[in-house]
Design a protein around this nucleic acid. Structure first.
Length: 478
RNA sequence: AGCGGGGUGGACCAGCGGUAGGUCGCAAGGCUCAUAACCUUGAAGCACAGGUUCGAUUCCUGUCCCCGCAACCA
């Protein structure tokens, strides 16, 4: 069955965050695993580029908004190569086709009677040029501009009839696999049970100058929801579907969204209600990953503990970065990452573990075996277990299986001592058999490795086929 | 207030009613094919307080601490 896998689209008001790199790598390893098993996968990612924050950020930088978003879109697009992503589609919410799709989504929900205009009163900060929430207000002032008086402003916006979908959302959430991990489904369920309120989906054009116009109302611009969330289907060609991808992957395929844990309400509730309203099939499954903290704190520029994915790749390489994110970041819980820990993991597992194992085995093979070993094509139970772990998003456990396999190689080498036996004529043949067995062990390893570290996997396989010790796979850190 | 998750040796994670496992780090031996790598052994642990039970890290109750959501906030 065709599969559709998408990340959320990051908002381009800052450089790529390590958390987004995690999301991409998790999605990619799923994509690669399914593709390796012969399934056709549509892999989507891209950038969310509208909104007042972006408009203001561009102004601050003294750039045109278009130049600003083009710059960031490029920064995010580069992640594809930096993280060795397997051919994702990259959609920008400023793409002409997406703009039309967002407007069509609006029209359909409107036709279903789910969009209406309502007067809304909020406290507006002139300094921020934005309405403030209770959390952002302290002593009746905006926390960022305590010297300015908040203004009570009344604005007329469009609202989406979210509350109408309470029952249908409960029915959707009764599917046990629609939210992973399961306890986040509990969270979503409780949220719906507590009652839903309609949410605002537009802003006056005078306040939101960089966004998609509301159909048939020049005075209003879409606020994030209809704009950003529609990307999951617009990327497939919805609604006109010129290539049949929407029909193939969304309607007839299995769909999976990968998102951060703070997205439950947006992805599993608001977006699903919009799909119901527009009479489009719901997402089959949304997987929510945890967050990455550093030194026990949320990464933030002011704390100076931000780890940028490009720095990660510059230091360890794309392959090792993928490995580090998959094995040492818990799939669904928060994980703490520091440079110190990353160095430790890189050295222990990749340099001393995998890299060293390949070197010691292939050195012996190159010197003592006259030709490369024949490889069997059959799947082992370990490979099946690995595949299942990946598909169940237990990425860290899947990695553990790989490294158990690595450890077994080292243990076998020590217990059989082929390097010793090869020096004695009487045991020479036995040593050769040991070495051949170890080489086959490596070949098997490449099967698991291919969706995690594709280049490394290919290098090892090539070394086995050429019967030659490769260059160090993972150089020791300076 | 509430909802959800979590608190297991120095670090991260698994176990979830019957001598507490794994990985990393640390220490001591061993080995020499290998990227001063590898193998073996060892030290060290179930947030706290009650309860249920023959027996609790595991179930129940309460307390403390951490994280996310808490409605227009990606």
């Amino acid at each position: 069955m065709p599969r559709y896998i998408t990340t959320t689209l990051p908002y381009v008001n800052a450089d790529p965050h390590i958390g987004f790199a995690l999301e991409l790598v998790q999605a990619d390893v799923l994509v690669r695993q399914y593709r390796s098993e012969g399934e056709e996968v549509f892999f989507n990612t891209g950038t969310d580029e509208h909104g007042q924050k972006i408009f203001e950020a561009a102004e601050k930088k003294g750039e045109s908004v278009q130049a600003y978003v083009d710059h960031y879109a490029a920064e995010f697009r580069k992640l594809k190569d930096a993280l060795a992503l397997d051919n994702p589609t990259f959609i920008r919410t400023t793409d002409a086709h997406h703009v039309e799709a967002a407007q069509e989504m609006w029209r359909r929900c409107n036709a279903a009677g789910d969009i209406y205009k309502k007067k809304y009163t909020g406290r507006y900060c002139v300094g921020c040029e934005a309405f403030k929430t209770e959390r952002e207000i302290e002593n009746d002032r905006c926390v960022l501009h305590p010297n300015l008086e908040l203004q009570l402003i009344q604005e007329e916006n469009y609202f989406f009839a979210f509350s109408k979908y309470q029952d249908r959302l409960l029915a959707y959430l009764s599917r046990t696999d629609c939210v992973i991990p399961s306890w986040r489904r509990e969270e979503a369920l409780n949220f719906v049970k507590n009652g839903l309120e309609d949410f605002s989906i537009s802003r006056e054009a005078s306040r939101l100058s960089w966004g998609i116009p509301v159909p048939d109302d020049e005075s209003q611009v879409m606020y994030v929801w209809f704009d950003a969330l529609t990307d999951y289907v617009s990327t497939l060609g919805w609604p006109s579907d010129p290539n049949g991808n929407f029909e193939k992957f969304w309607v007839n395929g299995t769909t999976l969204q990968v998102a951060g844990k703070d997205q439950v309400r947006f992805q599993s509730l608001m977006w699903q209600a919009m799909l119901m309203s527009a009479n489009v099939k719901n997402t089959d499954q949304v997987f929510y990953h945890g967050f990455i903290t550093s030194g026990g704190q949320k990464m933030s520029k002011s704390l100076g503990n931000v780890i940028n994915p490009y720095e990660l790749v510059a230091k360890y390489g794309a392959e090792a970065t993928r490995y580090l994110l998959l094995r040492h970041v818990h799939p669904t819980e928060d994980s703490d990452v520091t440079w110190e820990k990353l160095d430790e993991w890189y050295t222990a597992n990749l340099v001393n573990g995998l890299g060293n194992l390949v070197a010691r085995i292939m050195k012996l093979a190159e010197e003592h075996c006259t030709e490369s070993v024949s490889l069997s094509e059959t799947n082992t139970p370990v490979e099946t277990a690995f595949s299942l772990k990946i598909k169940n998003q237990a990425f860290n456990e899947a990695m553990d299986l790989i490294f158990e396999h690595v450890a077994k190689g080292d243990e076998y080498m020590t217990s059989r001592e082929p390097y010793k036996k090869i020096k004695d004529e009487a045991t020479k043949d036995e040593a050769k058999e040991d070495i051949e067995k170890l080489v086959r062990h490596l070949a098997k390893l490449t099967v698991h490795l291919s969706c995690v570290m594709p280049e490394t996997s290919a290098k090892i396989l090539a070394a086995v086929q050429e019967n030659k010790k490769p260059e160090n796979l993972f150089p020791r850190l300076g």
